[in-house]
Amino acid sequence: MPKSHPILLVEDNPDDQLLTLRALESNNIINQVEVAVDGQEALDYLHRRGEYAGRSDRGPQFVLLDINLPKLSGIEVLREIRSTPRLRHLPVVILTSSKEDRDLIESYNLGVNSYIRKPVDFNQFTELVKQLGFYWLVINEAPEL
């Protein structure tokens, strides 16, 4: 059974947020999805500071991270996660429009767990989100945060 910790979705584009949430929902993934709209907010959530200072829930289970973000880019968020001992083993999946080499290589250099390019075709996207959820929530075992 899917674990009940939340999923962190870092996405600034409201259309993409909505489509992603819809794709998760239509795949019966019922985990709570926390949405951060920029890199800074994502780190605040993970470090339980600022707006998220008092959050008591655990997790997240994994992070869906866009690259092109206001304030701090997805690459910088990933770097911060990997250099923070407590967060170092957190599964991070880059979910982005680009598959430019420099993004791809930089992400892997920083230790990303997966790199997914968002397809234009929504049906394909839905299928992809289904597989992602199934893999990271059901199949994969990760250390507790």
Partner: peptide, 11 residues
């Protein structure tokens, strides 16, 4: 282009 032009298409 690769980042921004595709997002509207997905929408």
């Amino acid at each position: 282009v690769s980042h921004d032009l595709r997002a509207p298409l997905r929408a």
